[in-house]
Amino acid sequence: MKLERLGVVALACTLAACSETKSSAPRAEQRAGAAPTAASREPLEALPDVPPLDPKIVALGRRLFHERRLSADGSIACANCHDLQRGGVDGQVRSTGVGGKQGAVNAPTVYNAALNFVQFWDGRAATLEEQIGFPVTNPAEMATSFEHVLAFLKADPGYASAFAAAFPNGVTEANARRALADFERTLLTRDSPFDRFLAGDEHALAPEARAGYETFKSVGCVACHQGRNVGGNMFQRFGVLGDYFKDRGNVTEADYGRFNVTHNEADRFVFRVPSLRNVARTAPYFHDGSAATLAQAVQVMARYQLGRKLSDDQVRSIIAFLQSLSGELARAGEKG
């Protein structure tokens, strides 16, 4: 399709793009890959169901997720930094790994991570299975190797039998990755007030939260934080309408973001847009953990990403909306 042929379409649609979004009516869930329709105009969608998974593999993944003995000194499990009782994070600016070493960036939540289009702040892993290898071998995290991990799993009768029950070929690196990834695929926090609102429950959102949703769309947050995961489906430069890093100072290599993966100058200071689901539980915020509260985070985003000033009322209502994105943690991980 040639660009020129879309001139008429462009004229018609630009007006829509320039106008503030008004509607918040629930929308039919859009099928992935389907052609865009009128029903897809809503920028946010409810969380999908957990896909059908083998319960034995999921149970094994849950066990591995909490297994400290996978780390070099037996002190760090995945769950240390991704505490499932605390929103899938540890509440620290930077997490502590083996030997007290500090990570380079703030630990992202594992909840709903399966819906992110890439993993990590810099998007260096395309899949959950690929992602799992990084913390295992990172010297500032679990500081071990898959040789060590596999040797431990094979020597442990409980794990050896659990792997044999879940996989025809027993303990392998691919199977360990698959088990952990499948467990993470069950960590979807459904039934948030906002999801219930999208499903048609007009009373699920408090008036302030509903107003916050409108503000969230109208001031432009939704330009990046959109889709079923309210983010997590694109990259964006941190500091579009202001130089965040110059103002913050003390720039580190980790601040280069996507550049560290592609070495493309256009990708310097570019990060995966984080999901805002459960954001009220995952302070501190940003890759550097520099925002301790949601209010600080919203104001930084307004200044450096949106290039606009937000009133206190707008900030409060946006925060109320963000709080409505907190889903059911206890039920996440039960299915599968």
Partner: peptide
């Protein structure tokens, strides 16, 4: 051109 407001599809 604004026919879709999100990037999930």
């Amino acid at each position: 051109f604004g026919l879709s407001n999100q990037y999930d599809p």
